[in-house]
Design a protein around this nucleic acid. Structure first.
Length: 186
DNA sequence: AATCGGATCGTCT
DNA sequence: GACGATCCGATTG
């Protein structure tokens, strides 16, 4: 499997969000591969998107969204969970990221079960907080380069011919008219 | 099946 | 000082 090149992320955030569906998210934990196929994403852009963390301008938390594309933007929320995003934007915007909400587990399932404290595969990575828990993604991965083969990266999946379902983004109060939540059923 | 409240703390005003 | 780009278990219908 080849790693997605930086160019992949240097396009409009909404396009990248759609195209990340079906790709493999790979995490190395103690030299063991833990991975899955991305099945749901959300695009968060910049000045045209009041729901985006970047909307208010650059802060200590969101500065990764303004940084190099192809890197991780991880933030802590609700006092207990982390959310994992990939920085992506086209030339029209100075900030943007794609939230990875869900994936279908492939490798390292027992490791994920341990991290999530459940043996139900369907409950391992079916939500943004669950996914980071299963993959042990925390703020220490803030800014990690996903376009290089390190402990967290994204590769081309098999060609998946699945219909992309667009809908409203979850858990936000503004910008709800934008259908920037994308998923596939595989 | 749908709804509700509690957990818990970093981040921003 | 208030509030989440959430999850879970309990309760209700």
């Amino acid at each position: 499997m080849s790693i997605l090149p930086r160019d992949f992320y240097a396009r409009d955030t909404v396009i990248v969000a759609k195209e990340l569906l079906g790709k493999n998210l790979v995490r190395l934990i103690d030299n063991k591969i833990v991975s899955g196929v991305i099945t749901e994403t959300e695009a968060y852009r910049y000045k045209d998107d009041p729901a985006s963390h970047a909307f208010v301008g650059m802060t200590e938390r969101n500065k990764a969204m303004f940084g190099e594309v192809g890197r991780a933007y991880v933030y802590f929320t609700y006092g207990m969970y982390h959310c994992f995003n990939v920085v992506a934007r086209g030339h029209k915007f100075d900030a943007g990221a794609v939230l990875i909400r869900t994936m279908k587990p492939q490798k390292g399932i027992s490791e994920m079960m341990k991290n999530r404290n459940t043996n139900k595969i369907s409950n391992l990575t079916n939500g943004p907080g669950k996914l980071t828990q299963a993959l042990q993604i925390t703020k220490k991965h803030y800014g990690v380069d996903l376009a290089r083969r390190t402990e967290l990266y994204i590769t081309n999946g098999k060609i998946i011919s699945a219909k992309i379902i667009a809908g409203r983004r979850i858990g936000i109060k503004t910008g709800i008219e934008k259908n920037w939540n994308f998923k596939i059923e595989i």
